[in-house]
């Protein structure tokens, strides 16, 4: 899609599906895909997230208001100096007819880190 540049030279997208939820962290510092998501939020850089995202991701997700059922697999991706991960959030059902532009208005920064999911939009949101 043409995104390139500092801290995003090598980006890898991981897709959320019905059975898999992905979460991105950088345990060593705060590696983050700047060209796509801008600068990371304060909590991404803080010790608590860096330490706990890899060992208790479901608890961390609950703190962000995301509760996943036990049959959903959680995959945590530890970004490195070279590779930056990005989550492709799951599209809510029934929205296959939406254009790329319309879908873009539903996607949030947090859903691309993996600490949020895209919920079913209201009719207003789809205008």
């Amino acid at each position: 899609m043409g995104y390139e540049g500092r801290q995003g030279e090598h980006m890898e997208v991981v897709e959320n599906t019905v059975g898999v939820h992905n979460l991105v962290v950088c345990t060593l510092c705060s590696c983050y895909p700047w060209p796509v998501l801008g600068l990371p939020p304060t909590w991404y850089k803080a010790s608590s997230y860096r330490a706990r995202a890899v060992s208790e991701p479901r608890e961390v997700l609950k703190e962000f208001g995301v509760e996943l059922s036990a049959d959903v697999e959680v995959r945590v991706w530890d970004s490195t100096a070279e590779i930056r991960y990005l989550v492709l959030p799951q599209r809510p059902t029934g929205l296959d007819h939406l254009s790329e532009q319309q879908l873009a208005t539903l996607v949030t920064r947090d859903s691309m880190i993996g600490v949020a999911v895209i919920s079913q939009p209201s009719p207003d949101e789809l205008r």
Partner: peptide, 24 residues
């Protein structure tokens, strides 16, 4: 700095999370 999996940290600051949600 190799914090992955280290024990003893508190939950993510709710103030930080709330900021994140209020002004997307």
């Amino acid at each position: 700095h190799d914090l992955g999996g280290m024990h003893g940290f508190s939950p993510i600051s709710q103030a930080d999370i709330d900021q994140a949600n209020i002004e997307e």
